[in-house]
């Protein structure tokens, strides 16, 4: 599913953020990347999601080399990856309309979008809040909405950036449990977190990201 080798990335100022990173994630695996703030977790997820173009090294996602993809193919790949960005901010509209917006701009007609949006909201447990203004949601519900947005178009890979950030321990356990339910051995999930990982989360492997290098934890 994901094969990263000899991946390096530097900022414009020449600061090395990632250095000779090697990572392998099997299909349907749930992998956690744990590292301190500014360790490069967000950057690594951006590179895996074809949002940030790589500088050096090779990234294979679904057997495709991200560095060599044309713009159109990179967009095609990105459509098959669900991303929950760090500190996710919902659109200033209702919960349901957040999902409709994404599905409609990706080309679904109204009926199809309605169906997928309801299914995603049901999966994350937000069906009753579908008419609520998304900006009024508490932090844990925002994470649920972010997850619904990431998975509403049935992606093959989920990249989740700090889904437990800003949540109290109970809420972290609730989100961990939700991630285990979403994963359920069907999709590949990569979660970046500062830790700790909630006990309720399903974890196949944990990697540590420190000083620009990835190593098994």
């Amino acid at each position: 599913m994901i094969q990263v080798s000899e991946l390096s990335f530097s900022t414009d100022d020449g600061i090395k953020v990632l250095e000779d990173v090697h990572l392998h994630v099997d299909p349907r695996e749930a992998v956690y990347l744990v590292g301190p703030a500014s360790a490069g977790k967000t950057l690594l997820l951006g590179l895996l999601g074809a949002v940030v173009p790589p500088q050096r090294g090779q990234i294979l996602v679904h057997g495709r080399n991200v560095a060599r993809l044309s713009r159109e193919r990179a967009l095609g790949l990105r459509r098959r990856i669900g991303i929950l960005p760090q500190a996710f901010v919902p659109l200033p509209r209702t919960v349901f309309d957040n999902l409709l917006f994404k599905l409609r701009i990706l080309g679904d007609d109204r009926e199809e979008a309605d169906e997928k949006a309801l299914l995603a909201l049901e999966t994350v447990g937000l069906i009753r809040e579908r008419g609520t203004d998304a900006e009024d949601l508490p932090p844990v519900e925002r994470v649920r909405l972010g997850l619904a947005l990431a998975l509403c178009n049935s992606p093959l890979l989920l990249l989740l950036d700090e889904p437990f950030e800003g949540l109290d321990p109970d809420e972290q356990e609730a989100v961990g449990s939700l991630l285990a339910k979403i994963h359920d051995g069907r999709s590949t999930v990569v979660v970046a977190t500062r830790g700790p990982i909630p006990r309720s989360a399903h974890v196949d492997r944990v990697f540590s990201l420190r000083d620009g290098k990835v190593s098994p934890a």
Binding site: V51, R78, R79, P90, K102, I105, L106
Partner: peptide, 16 residues
């Protein structure tokens, strides 16, 4: 801006 970020994250073509 939030919609544009979401579009870019979702793989919507920049040309659109």
């Amino acid at each position: 801006r939030h919609e544009i970020r979401l579009m870019r994250l979702s793989g919507v073509s920049e040309r659109s």
